[in-house]
């Protein structure tokens, strides 16, 4: 029991990071039907952007915003100048997965070639620790959870309360119909990639804030739980991704404290497999199953 409480604390932090990352990942799929496996590497690239700012004397929280901006612009350009070009040329779903993997290899190894194979960390001023119900959390960790909550609420408000959100959901459901209803789908797609890229950039920095050090593979290594969370909730479902993030985050940290920390991702994977055996379309999946029928 005494072991379980801190594990839940860690689980909530992991869930927070995962939620930010998985919602961005799933958003890209829902609006453009692209499973962007370079997502983890864009996270890493954003973490390096924050690193450069941070070591030039910028405060880490301001660096985080700059990383969000970097992730946003980088993702938008990635989609517009690489992915979208292949889609327009007729590359289909699996071809696109291979394209994103090629981009993943390129981004990751360019980072390696530029920054060299060592570990990096941010300059963060030491902050006090706080104790809640037996969980000891640092100021940064509390901030991570806060950022996650703000990000999730923003995504929710954006997609339900604004015209842009409605346009995005319309584009996700049926791009052809959305276009004929006067939605500027190209612009919506750009905005969706900016938004998901910002989430990706934030996720990259908070991931590093939590693990303290990072290298060129940090983001890619985090891709397993991201995919697990997104698939668990039903790919393309933002709320599903949030739910998946909480499930995977809590379950893997608790299991890690009980079994062995190195099996965290294995546990995440096992959960994924079991859930998919019971519900092959993920937890929240009405839209997904409708897509299958229409396909």
């Amino acid at each position: 029991m005494s072991q379980l409480v801190p594990a839940i604390g860690f689980g909530l932090i992991t869930a927070s990071i995962l939620a930010i990352a998985a919602v961005g990942f799933t958003l890209q799929f829902s609006v453009t039907n692209i499973l962007n496996l370079a997502y983890g590497d864009v996270m890493t690239a954003s973490a390096f952007a924050a690193y450069i700012a941070n070591h030039a004397g910028v405060d880490i929280w301001l660096s985080l915003l700059m990383a969000a901006l970097f992730g946003a612009v980088f993702s938008m350009l990635l989609n517009r100048f690489v992915y979208f070009q292949f889609v327009r040329r007729g590359t289909r779903l699996f071809g696109m997965i291979i394209v994103t993997i090629a981009m993943s290899l390129i981004i990751q190894n360019v980072l390696l070639a530029v920054f060299r194979p060592t570990f990096f960390s941010y300059e963060v001023s030491a902050s006090a620790s706080y104790t809640f119900a037996g969980m000891i959390l640092t100021g940064s960790q509390l901030a991570i959870m806060g950022i996650a909550v703000v990000a999730m609420v923003s995504v929710h408000l954006l997609s339900t309360r604004t015209r842009l959100g409605k346009a995005m959901r319309a584009t996700a459901t049926n791009p052809g119909l959305a276009r004929s209803c006067g939605v500027a789908t190209d612009r919506v797609i750009d905005v969706a990639w900016l938004l998901s890229g910002a989430l990706c950039g934030i996720a990259g920095v908070v991931l590093v804030l939590n693990t303290a050090t990072f290298s060129e593979v940090t983001g890619a290594n985090f891709l397993v739980p991201i995919i697990a969370a997104a698939v668990l909730g039903g790919i393309g479902q933002p709320y599903g991704a949030m739910l998946g993030a909480v499930t995977i985050g809590l379950a893997s940290e608790v299991a890690a404290s009980v079994i062995n920390p190195s099996y965290k991702d294995v546990v995440a994977f096992a959960i994924l497999i079991v859930v998919l055996l019971v519900r092959p379309q993920g937890i929240l999946s009405e839209v997904a199953s409708g897509k299958e029928v229409a396909a």
Binding site: L35, L223, V224, I227, I235, D265, F269, P280, A288
Partner: peptide
């Protein structure tokens, strides 16, 4: 599984 899920599961399997 749907084929895009299959692809994801295979990739994750490789990492695991």
């Amino acid at each position: 599984l749907r084929s895009d899920y299959q692809a994801m599961v295979m990739l994750v399997l490789s990492l695991i």
